[in-house]
Amino acid sequence: MSLLDVQNLTLEFKTDEGLVTAVDDVSFTLEKGEVMGLVGESGSGKSVTAKALMKLNAQNAAYGPDSRIDLQLGDGSTVDVMSLNRPKDLQVVRGGAVSMIFQEPMASFAPALPIGKQMVEQLLIHADLSKAAAKALSIEMLDRVGISDAATRFNQYAFEMSGGMRQRAMIAMALSTKPQLLIADEPTTALDVTIQAQVIDLMKELVTEFGMGIIFITHDLGVVAQTADKVAVMYLGRMVEQGPVRDVIRNPQHPYTRGLIDALPKLDDLDAPLVPVPGDIPSPLERPSGCVFHTRCSQSLGQMCQTSVPEWSHRNADHKCACHLVLDGAGQ
């Protein structure tokens, strides 16, 4: 039994302009101690998918009837997140079995409360601890993520810390409840490269130590290459490629994944031209028929890509891709 098993997740938002499909028939699994990189442009549905794991999307979200999210809890039992509805029931998932780190650490801490108070508050809700024990644990966690003089920092406010330190405190807070699954939504995007390297190192160390599963959302394939065990690439709410990190980065099958890799400026060849993925991601209100990527694909087969949704074809047991161009077993 996997730590997380997501099957046929579909999510639509009811808006004034009509139904917007944000996630379309997404399936994946995650094991304990495994890091999955979730990659795609803005608007591809990465964050919505991650938030769906805690049913944290806005009130106007409607989940598809076949959607299933099975999550293993700390005590070994399994819960279907889709069946939970009341906020009280959802607490076993939100902040309990699942913690989340957001992109902008300044926006995710309350500005008018010391960070220590916020750390203790969530521990009192989710862990069976006394106030003093919660405080001791929080200080220990701050120390653990490399914040020096943790006892003083415990009483400080978010604005008194630098960006890198705030993100460390966020990680300490997310891990203090000992979650089974950690969702990190672009945790290093707002940081400088030197600080990003420190935070990535820290997260790798903590996975080894705590053994939880991580979903790492990012648009930077370099970060994925350095952190993830496997990669899932999303485009307009659909998953278009999935596989072990080495396979996906060295042998990208989907034209979109190849486009993302080609668009990265490479340091080993300064003369190589930068190749953008042509065009812009279409509005989710005007989702293309057939393969959602056909409007920007340079290798579109015409009729076939415009009308029929591609099935998964497997390059090998773990590496699969949803594209008409790629035939089953092509890699063998």
Binding site: T194, Q226, R246, L264
Partner: peptide, 20 residues
């Protein structure tokens, strides 16, 4: 140090960078 902090696209290049 700035150069070595750029995440490499090669998954096997992990852990060789000089950290600041």
């Amino acid at each position: 140090a700035l150069f070595s902090a750029i995440p490499s696209l090669d998954p096997d290049d992990r852990g060789t960078v000089q950290k600041l």
